[in-house]
Design a protein around this nucleic acid. Structure first.
Lengths: 264, 264
DNA sequence: CGGGGCATTGAAGAATGTCAATGCTTGTGG
DNA sequence: CCACAAGCATTGACATTCTTCAATGCCCCG
């Protein structure tokens, strides 16, 4: 980071998170972030195998590149979109990490998901023509913007693309089913363990260490996601540490024994 | 029912609306249930506005009819599909009611949803090419079978259809988000209240009374769905009744004051 | 070096789960 | 047609888990 350039859309806003608690977690050192817009290139993107269908022809890839023509930088604490925003695009996280938050009428908030690099974002907006949650960056992040109407057009012409979109959406459904299972049947300790294992698996998928990583979210955000109070989350971390299953120091997590963790 | 002519859509069955409290819950007296197969007809189906996109041309409707060419009768307690089954089709509940159940490796089960007439079923299978839950009829039911590959073909030619499929899937995502919110933030009483209100709303959508209906599921199934024990569910029913908000007798439910119910 | 956000930990209280007994409804078989 | 078994619902007493309230410490930042 550094890039002065304006255009940081959603701008500051949801500042709240800004304080930069522990350590600087930013790192986006984009070369051309002239207007938070930059030419993208799915065909050359290293996340390509993760977020797009395989086996596209050169022509098809070119069309894809034409659609996914912009990226957007979202600074820590800023929102990518808010509930109620007109739904136009879905996003692919390219760098960084987001949380999605639903706000009840009564002001009550709940984190519904964390999204790391390579994962889609905004699929829940398709059904209602408007976003129904806020997407907030947990660290300086970058997303690819995918106009959904254009994507639908591409789906029309490229069957593999259509299938991929269907799979992404269905995948969201399954992901949420898993979370529901967790919320509905697991104890606090099991939830925290499952959360760590899930994150670990996803980190691994994109080439990071599955045993050691940094949490980008607070205990409170984890708690909100897991249906627990932050104190409970903290206690479970401590308990797992005492049991020698993990080693934690604040946001730094080291999984020492993933089997035991899974068997909690 | 009597109408020999198949296709008497919502027909008697989905008795739901009819008190029939305890009473026999079977009733599908299909004329031609020779092989659990029968000719369907989306264009003539009364659920059409609910489960298919509006404004289709005659030609398009004909194509749809050609795809949704069969129905299947599923008796109470039987499964429509099981986790692990090859994913081929999605379904639309035409008559009756289903629950979907995920089974943990440890044998632990959780109900992930209830599906009544007019609602889609099986969308979560799209992502993995296999079903990842069991769908079990809670009463004698009938579904329309929609081969997904054919549907994708139709989506290719009919934009309205493609959008509809996307909306259905996204709708599933949103539905589950709501459930997660419930599981993550609500008390037992609030969950039961929200459950009843949600069901009430869905009943209303398809023309049944929103104030009075029969539950097709047991307290245990409700509990599994809500992340509660059956005893707790039962207690909450009793509590809401004492508060004069609902009137229940076993599976028969009468919502006396939906505002109070929402404000619990 | 003082403040703020975040994390950890303890003690007490509330909500939910567990265990157990009872009754009602339905279905079955004599 | 009645008796009985099985499944479901209700209710009470007690145990456990999680939350609430509160105090303290840590770490970065201005």
């Amino acid at each position: 980071m550094t890039s002065a350039t304006a255009c940081a859309p959603t701008a500051s806003t949801s500042s709240t998170a800004m304080p930069l608690a522990y350590r600087p977690q930013s790192t986006i050192t984009e070369s051309p972030p002239p207007g938070t817009r930059a030419v993208t290139n799915c065909s050359a993107c290293s996340l390509h195998p993760i977020c797009m269908p395989p086996h596209l022809s050169t022509t098809e890839l070119a069309r894809l590149d034409a659609i996914v023509c912009s990226t957007r930088i979202v600074r820590r604490g800023e929102t990518l979109y808010r509930a109620g925003d007109k739904f136009k695009s879905i996003y692919a996280v390219r760098v960084g990490c987001f949380k999605t938050v639903i706000t009840h009428r009564d002001g009550h908030e709940q984190v519904t998901g964390f999204h790391i690099a390579g994962e889609p974002l905004g699929l829940d907006g398709v059904c209602s023509d408007e976003q129904n949650c806020d997407a907030i960056a947990l660290e300086d992040s970058k997303v690819c913007v995918i106009p959904f109407d254009l994507l639908e057009d591409l789906c029309h012409d490229v069957k593999a693309m259509q299938q991929h979109v269907h799979r992404m959406m269905s995948g969201e459904i399954v992901r949420e089913s898993g979370l529901m299972m967790m919320l509905g049947t697991m104890t606090a300790q099991q939830r925290v363990a499952a959360f760590l294992l899930n994150l670990s698996k996803r980190m691994k998928t994109r080439g990071y260490s599955s045993a050691e990583f940094n949490l980008r979210m607070t205990r409170e955000e984890i708690g909100s996601y897991l249906g627990l109070k932050l104190e409970t989350v903290s206690r479970m971390f401590s308990k797992l540490q005492q049991a020698g299953v993990i080693d934690t120091n604040g946001k730094q997590v080291h999984i020492l024994d993933s089997e035991k963790l899974a068997g909690v």
